[in-house]
Write a protein that binds this DNA or RNA. Structure first.
Lengths: 354, 354
DNA sequence: CTGAAAGCGCTAACAT
DNA sequence: ATGTTAGCGCTTTCAG
């Protein structure tokens, strides 16, 4: 490991070959651990490589083999604990298999996502893991298919796009949450999501996130079955743009406040919790609050928060395993894996105020 | 954008050139937007590219230019909100400048980190952002220097390694926290960190994280100045291995329990908070709890938690800006940027129980 | 403004 | 087991 002096240029296979007095091919075989090389030569080459401080050029290798050993992952925002967990699950499986991850944040914007897709394809990732910014815009993902690169979606599906996906049973989760509230006696229940939507939600409208769409379906279904009129009016979207605080204050204030809130993710739950506290609306006495996703902090608040949890790490891990299988040539028809959501009852639900 | 039929192979500059009836060089100039090309030809090439569904091969470009437009980032764990925020800050600055990020988790293990470094160098990243797993092992980072790739450290420095770094004033933060507790009347204060350490902490011992080391210094200094004997006995390391819960229960139980805890990060704070609650130790009446880093949830607990906050996004952003400058050829001597830590007083500190 | 040709560092046939 | 020779897709001289 001598790092021969101040050589300006990185040592190449050729340099090593010359020092070891073998051909470039032989040196490459020894270094890359493929083909057949005699032990004597292997040692000699290794020694030369150490002396020169040889570091392989993975790009050159990719150029000739066509495989980059790199996966792309495009998510909404790495600061969102959901994506952080899924990304970690993916990174672990990838690393285990000798792959790296190129990370891009889409900010849930179709345009940003499209750019990220283009860049990742240009970098010749072997496959792509995407939580699609919109379930309605297969166009964004089409380049991946055109490039014939394996693609696995997670968290959301894109109906009409025939690719693998790993999601959880959002409809069931929504039902579990809604029915729990219904059983406790609630009728005025609000569902809050940050999903961008051009107007107030109307019945049976198509949403740009399949995950939120299913949650809304489970929610409205359960309400309807319980005889609640116009359940769609209880669906509050656009909270990213409008501000979760603003939305929450609005529905908690006024003359006919809701008695329960279902937060579509842990970030919404946090904001709602904060707003309720700020307004002096006590949980669970005056407001029952439940959420999707079990964030760490939800077990230390007063009260702690009832949720449906999903195996987020596993979502990323399974999606990656699937992707790796596709890269390896698995030609089975695309499939959607649906993981369960499970209710975790804690202290944030009570009978509504008279 | 015709994506000509079922062509097995991705279209190359050559294909585009032929279709446009120009030379490869000209097509490349038009596509890559460099050199000089007549408008007529440019259009013709663009049209041909669209027709063939041409997607540039960034690797080939890197092979000839030597620049990959990719940065590597190696952190402890993307699930840790601290690293998630710093990574986001880095990703935004990088994206703005047309760079991508290859992400690796070191799990704070030197060996994992060393592998990640090797892989990233092999992928010819243009520069590296690293939160070093150990401030004591410059060897892990030496290959980066040998390869003459710009390197910027963040969160921790590596004394003796002459490179740029972006950190915060941990010593000051520690003092602020400690003195706040001292002023409130506490004398039995514990500092808890998950930092791996081979044995119980002894005075003036060298720690493997410069960040934790500075916090410990600020902490013990303040204690000593206040006349507290053997402040080093109040430093509890290794909590990752031993379990924060176990450490916390131990120091909160027994016949001489501590009256205050300083958590070295938000994860430790969460575990300590949970443990205190489980043991029925009320905050702040029987235990004052303060922490480094202002996590979102810290403002919704009861009580909310007093912390010193650091501009985490900005740490990542500044480190990346610095790295980009180095890549651009800035030759000034390496510098360490120190960002401030600021006290945010909330409700988790009170006078100790008599 | 355009073209021809060399070369980035590696791997993959094909010989020997 | 080892060497020779072509590429991989792009950029970059150097000519014209």
């Amino acid at each position: 490991m001598n790092e021969a002096g101040a050589s300006r240029r990185e040592a190449t296979v050729n340099d090593v070959a010359q020092l070891a007095r073998v051909s470039k091919a032989t040196a490459a075989r020894a270094l890359g651990d493929y083909g057949a090389v005699s032990d004597a030569v292997r040692d000699r080459v290794q020694k030369a490589a150490d002396e020169l401080g040889y570091r392989p050029n993975a790009l050159a290798r990719t150029m000739s083999t066509g495989r980059s050993n790199t996966l792309g992952i495009i998510i909404g925002d790495i600061e969102n604990p959901y994506f952080a967990k899924a990304t970690r699950g993916a990174a672990d499986v990838a690393a285990e298999a000798g792959y790296d991850l190129i990370l891009s944040n889409s900010d849930e914007e179709a345009e940003t996502e499209a750019k990220a897709v283009a860049v990742q394809l240009a970098k010749r990732v072997d496959g792509l893991l995407i939580a699609p910014a919109s379930s309605l815009a297969p166009g964004n993902l089409q380049p991946v298919l055109d490039a014939r690169r394996p693609l696995v979606l997670f968290d959301r599906t894109v109906p009409g796009l025939d690719v693998d996906a790993v999601v959880t049973d959002n409809r069931s989760g929504a039902r579990q949450l809604t029915e729990l509230l219904l059983r406790a006696g609630h009728r005025r229940i609000a569902f809050i999501s940050t999903l961008t939507h051009p107007r107030a939600f109307r019945a049976d409208e198509i949403l740009s996130s399949s995950a939120v769409a299913e949650r809304v379906q489970g929610f409205t279904e359960s309400l309807r079955r319980a005889g609640v009129a116009r359940p769609e009016a209880s669906v509050h979207l656009n909270a990213r743009h409008d501000g979760v605080d603003a939305v929450a204050s609005r529905i908690l204030g006024g003359d006919d406040p809701v008695t329960a809130i279902i937060a579509s993710d842990s970030l919404v739950a946090l904001a709602a919790f904060r707003t309720a506290r700020r307004m002096g609306v006590s949980i669970p006495e005056r407001l029952s609050l439940v959420a999707f996703d079990d964030a760490d902090w939800m077990s230390v608040t007063t009260p702690d928060i009832t949720v449906v949890e999903q195996p987020i790490n596993e979502i990323g891990a399974q999606a990656t395993r699937m992707l790796l299988r596709r890269i390896a040539g698995d030609g089975r028809p695309p499939a959607t894996t649906v993981l369960p959501q499970q209710l975790v009852e804690r202290g944030s639900v009570a009978t509504p105020p008279r």
